[in-house]
Amino acid sequence: MRKMWVLFVSGVLLLTTAVFAGCGSEDASTGDKGSGDKTLVVYNCNPDDWTAPIVKEFQEQTGIEVQLVSGGSGELMARVRAEKDNPLGDVMWGGSGDSYVALSPYLQPYKSTEDAAIKPEFRVEGNAFYNITMDPYVIAYNTDLVSEAEAPKGWKDLLDPKWRGKISVADPAKSSSTYAVLLTMMDRLGGDPAIIAQLVENLDGKIASGSAAQIKALSDGEYALTATFEEAVMKYIAHGSHMKIVYPAEGTAISTGGIGIIKGAKHLENAQKFIDFAMSKGVHERFTNYQRRSTRGDIGAPSGLPAVTEIVYEPFDTKRAVDYKETFLQLWREAAMK
């Protein structure tokens, strides 16, 4: 998921009572300072442009002091596992749904007061975690290099030799989001593993350093096409980049961003309050301001984007993604070495 997409957030004060600490800084356990049940530690791997206002409002409404420990999803989830006997965090926030499936043994199930409002296809059996945002996988093209008439219509166009060397894609072994997109491409084209080698050949040896780099390269005009998340492209478009989105004709998948309570959380009641708040309608209504889609059934799409009902899609199959990853990556490596 989607989260898809990993930023390291520098320390910033929301309020005089709010502390933002990067990974490797003071341990979360030292942030309590006698505040007792008015403390909450959140491991956060989301950008602060939309999470900081949510945290600020939660603090103001509840009086609970929130400490955000920020870092990449892989880093923070590894920390959750390492701390299983003595959890220093209460909530894990951010990272793709498939990552949460693997993390479920380390999460505390909780049925939120907002559970019924979530679209049925995005509910999690057993409530081990919640899908808070959703993000379709799309194709994007640079409008300075590609006309609307010649723009791709679907996944199969990425295999067309006319785009050889003009497609910006990261190494799926290094980018979980790119892996999810390319697995979706393969599945929507019939599931033939040979598609992996065909795509690698069409990349002509050009691999981006990461998922963020591949979108920047498209925006800068270094490449004509990319395959990525909708939200990542919309951010660039909102800042003036000359790009357009294509929802593949063959259909696509929708990834999710997750949030969940860490098993053994020292501030369990506060963690439950935070989940209820983060999943509430009032909070999700503001997601559209940040080009993010809500998983709630009563919230529409961000301005300028089609409703999810207008997109041919299936929820991303997280279990398949976890089970098939090593096979996919082995086929990718073999094709890249030829």
Rank of each mutant, 00 (worst) to 15 (best):
R2I: 06
V6S: 09
V6M: 11
L7E: 15
L7I: 07
L14S: 10
L14A: 03
T16A: 10
G22V: 04
S25V: 07
S25M: 07
A28R: 10
D32R: 02
K33Y: 11
G34E: 12
S35V: 01
K38A: 08
T39M: 12
L40G: 02
L40I: 03
Y43L: 15
N44L: 14
N44P: 12
P47I: 14
D48E: 08
A52M: 07
I54P: 00
V55R: 00
V55M: 09
K56C: 09
E57D: 11
F58M: 00
Q59C: 11
Q61D: 12
E65K: 15
V66E: 11
V66G: 15
Q67Y: 15
L68I: 06
G74A: 09
A78E: 13
V80Y: 07
R81W: 01
K84T: 00
N86W: 00
V91L: 01
M92A: 07
G95Y: 11
S96D: 12
D98L: 13
Y100E: 02
L103S: 08
L103A: 08
P105D: 00
Y106S: 06
Y106R: 05
P109Y: 14
K111S: 04
K111M: 03
T113I: 03
E121P: 06
F122G: 05
F122P: 01
F122Y: 14
G126V: 10
G126T: 11
N127E: 03
A128P: 12
A128W: 10
Y130F: 09
M134Q: 15
P136K: 09
Y137C: 05
I139D: 02
A140Y: 04
A140V: 01
Y141I: 01
N142T: 04
T143V: 00
T143A: 05
D144A: 09
V146E: 02
E148N: 01
A149K: 13
W155T: 08
K156E: 12
K162M: 08
W163L: 01
S168C: 04
V169L: 12
V169H: 06
L182D: 03
D187C: 04
L189N: 10
G191V: 06
G191H: 04
A194L: 02
L199I: 04
V200I: 15
V200F: 10
K206Y: 00
A212K: 06
K216N: 13
A217S: 10
Y223H: 08
A224D: 11
E231A: 13
V233G: 01
K235G: 14
K235T: 12
I237M: 12
H239L: 11
G240C: 02
A249V: 14
E250M: 09
G251H: 04
A253S: 04
T256K: 06
I259G: 07
I261S: 02
I262T: 00
K266L: 00
L268W: 06
E269L: 06
D276G: 04
S280P: 03
G282K: 01
S294Y: 05
R296F: 05
G300V: 04
A301I: 06
P302K: 01
S303D: 15
Y313H: 08
P315V: 09
V322H: 10
V322C: 00
Y324L: 06
T327A: 14
T327E: 15
L329V: 03
L329N: 05
L331C: 11
A336Q: 15
M337Q: 14
